[in-house]
Design a protein around this nucleic acid. Structure first.
Length: 178
DNA sequence: CATGGGATTGACT
DNA sequence: GTCAATCCCATGC
């Protein structure tokens, strides 16, 4: 999974008529307490322990939907959180859903921009409605995961170097090769 | 059945 | 920098 997370950088997420390039991810694994799968298999987390290539969408703080890609084999319980996208197609549609400001430089923002909803939890990332297809591999920097209260020191955040669409705070070195 | 927490965002001091 | 908003669900009585 720590290999899948950086591999996802540069991949393209498509939903409806909108699409974006992944520029930031974070890895989560059931062996560490920040991961929802840490508590074991429950109605909420069973998808995390399910087969790879599945979307895990959940609501955070009662307001935002966050998108994950389940990656390890069935029974393992791990996922990669998609934290930021660089808009590729359907920017007008994203704009109408997001209003002014950045479109997708944050995990809650990108789901709103693409129109991804909780009902799409457990759907396939191969057959849709949300689809992820391979893209070019991007150079990246690693950083500490942000926004969490448990195991926050793990360096499992991956950001594409030079992208201004990465969520803040930008990790040191992000703009080196821009 | 009641309660508390959460991988966030945006507005305000 | 600080703080509230708000829904799902895991946990505990």
């Amino acid at each position: 999974m720590l290999e899948v997370a950086p591999d996802l950088l540069g991949c393209v997420v498509t939903h409806g008529s909108t699409a974006g390039v992944i520029v930031e991810t974070e890895a989560y694994h059931f062996t560490e307490p920040a991961c929802h799968a840490y508590v074991g298999v429950t109605p909420r987390t069973h998808v995390l322990h399910g087969p790879p290539g599945t979307a895990y969408v959940y609501r955070s703080y009662g307001i935002h939907a966050l998108l994950n890609a389940v990656c390890e084999p069935e029974g393992v319980g791990a996922a990669v959180l998609i934290r930021a996208l660089e808009p590729l197609r359907g920017e007008g549609e994203m704009r109408s859903r997001r209003g002014a400001g950045e479109l997708a430089n944050g995990p809650g923002k990108l789901t709103q921009a693409l129109g991804i909803e909780l009902t799409e939890n457990a759907t396939s990332l191969i057959t849709g409605p949300i689809r992820i297809h391979e893209g070019e591999r991007l150079p990246y920097v690693t950083g500490v995961r942000i926004g969490i209260t448990k195991a926050a020191e793990l360096p499992w955040r991956f950001c594409a170097i030079g992208s201004r669409d990465v969520s803040r705070p930008w990790p040191p070195g992000l703009m080196q090769a821009a």
